[in-house]
């Protein structure tokens, strides 16, 4: 039986040809490492770090954990940001603006 590779080591989607090759249970078949939900986005949030006060409310509220806290500043991981705009709504100093996603 083919054992699925650890997510850390590979981001290649696991493919099976036959039932016999599969583990008995669905393991990491829909791993978020390759299922980049950022592709669903139609608008893109952009943070103006000059206005940002590092309150990190956007980081707290992001439902997809797509905002990273790097040295006390928020950065958006566009691989996973679905463009829900909650960060724009929550930012108390209006440091996040919205841009049309370029197709």
């Amino acid at each position: 039986m083919k054992k699925p590779v650890s997510g850390k080591k590979s981001i290649k989607q696991i493919k099976f040809k036959k039932a016999g090759d599969m583990p008995p249970v669905a393991i990491s078949l829909a791993s978020m490492l390759y299922n980049k939900t950022g592709k669903w986005r139609s608008i893109r949030p952009v943070i103006d770090l000059n206005k940002c006060t590092s309150c990190m409310l956007c980081w707290k509220f992001c439902p997809d954990v797509a905002i990273k806290n790097i040295d006390g500043k928020p950065y958006i991981d566009l691989d996973y940001c679905k463009g829900c705009a909650i960060c724009i709504e929550e930012c108390p100093v209006k440091a996040v603006r919205v841009e049309e996603e370029k197709k």
């Binding site: 039932a19 599969m22 669905a26 078949l29």
Partner: peptide
Amino acid sequence: DPHTFGGLTGPEYYYELRYKI
């Protein structure tokens, strides 16, 4: 060795998983 178990699985595999049961 983290993995997701029983996550979203489309028609391409669900059918085979039932067969295995």
